[in-house]
Write a protein that binds this DNA or RNA. Structure first.
Lengths: 227, 227
DNA sequence: GTCTATAGAGTGATAGAC
DNA sequence: GTCTATCACTCTATAGAC
């Protein structure tokens, strides 16, 4: 047996599970999405996280405080989990990237057999009226989501009409996603989601065609591709 | 004192409150929309309806059964409460009627200071995964809503492009309404709802212009008005 | 920081008299 | 068909030892 004092310590001396607080948040994230906030009991969260009541109330003032931590988690993970993969998949075409993003939500929905849906959207309808601080965090989630889309629309430059209201359209993309997810869950089929995205595609194509035509008539280098 | 036997009975011998069952449903409709299904206790429904536990469980098997009765109520009242007023307000212009309908939802939202929202949409996200029979009724609500819009789009005839996918567009209108309501509630402002409707307006205008142009090029009587 | 035990209120649902 | 009373649980949150 080697002398423990001279053992070289491993780089990660703690191969532990994530710290208690994070385990609680991760369990709550999953359960709130599966069952909703009200329908999820604190005791279930504790059991799934493998944690005791005293630990949870050490880190969080209340169940609502834990919910706020979950929404903060979504804010912090929007870029790395949701947006960055789409930028990597569609680096050169910010308009097409919007549909790559919508297809990412589509895949999640299909994978879950049209259950669960958008966790923030679910909480928006369940909790916005009753918990003002929660509503603010949901709002910030939506604002950040739409702000990213708006940057993509800006990035498209003159491929889109110059007088296009990019801020409204960015919110509209979120509207299409959330509305499509809602109907897909109710219909237990991806079809209403696809139908909604197809209409958005048609609209976008018309915007691209219009911008290309104006560019051409002004003596631009040529019409861009519509897709 | 007149002889009671010869008294002419009033046409409605029962000026009573609505019968017990309906009082329960009406209270539940309101509370489920205000607080959600899970967050609403049966005891609260009973108190608000002025009814005792035994009466409720005489008419309904369970709280979920009462929820199904509420969704049935929405199905039965879609036409008289939601759709008929728009047809009366915009009898000759089925395309404009869609925006009259969206403005009807807008008014409700503004009146309630951007709370409550669409009661069926709320239940869709809260209950679709957990209660299969409830999900089916929510689906039927959405189907009927979109089917009415589709009839309006059909009614518009050649004012809209002949190759337009009217079924998809009808679902899309529902998508815009629900997605706009969700963001308005989260933002506690009507602005995201208006932004979404404005984009739908722009899209619709483009469809009308395209159909009018095609009609003209085929030698029709003239271009229709874009609004 | 984590443990056990429990308070105190509320949950959906039922039994049985009237 | 409506009443009261109550069952058997579950809920969120806390107290206090370790």
């Amino acid at each position: 047996m080697p002398d423990p004092i001279h053992e070289i310590p491993p780089e990660k001396p703690k191969p532990d599970l994530p710290p208690t607080r994070e385990r609680i948040v991760l369990a709550a994230l999953r359960l709130f999405q599966e069952q909703g906030f009200t329908a999820t009991g604190v005791s279930t969260i504790l059991r799934e996280a493998g944690v005791n009541s005293g630990s949870m109330y050490h880190y969080f003032d209340s169940k609502e405080d834990l919910l706020r931590a979950c929404l903060q988690w979504y804010i912090e993970h929007l870029e790395p989990i949701v947006m960055a993969p789409q930028k990597a998949a569609t680096p050169g075409d910010p308009v097409e990237r919007i549909f790559t993003l919508l297809d990412w939500y589509r895949q999640g929905l299909v994978q879950m057999n049209c259950t669960l849906g958008c966790p923030v959207g679910n909480l928006a309808l369940e909790c916005s009226d009753q918990y003002p601080l929660v509503r603010e965090l949901i709002d910030r989630n939506f604002e950040n989501w739409a702000a990213e889309i708006e940057r993509w629309l800006d990035e498209a430059g003159d491929r889109l009409p110059g007088d296009l209201d990019r801020k409204s359209l960015s919110k509209f993309v979120l509207t299409v996603m959330e509305g499509g997810v809602m109907q897909a869950r109710a219909h237990k089929s991806i079809e209403p989601f696809d139908a909604s995205v197809a209409v958005l595609r048609d609209y976008t194509d018309r915007l691209l065609v219009e911008a290309a035509a104006k560019k051409k008539s002004r003596g631009g280098s040529g019409g861009g591709k519509a897709r």
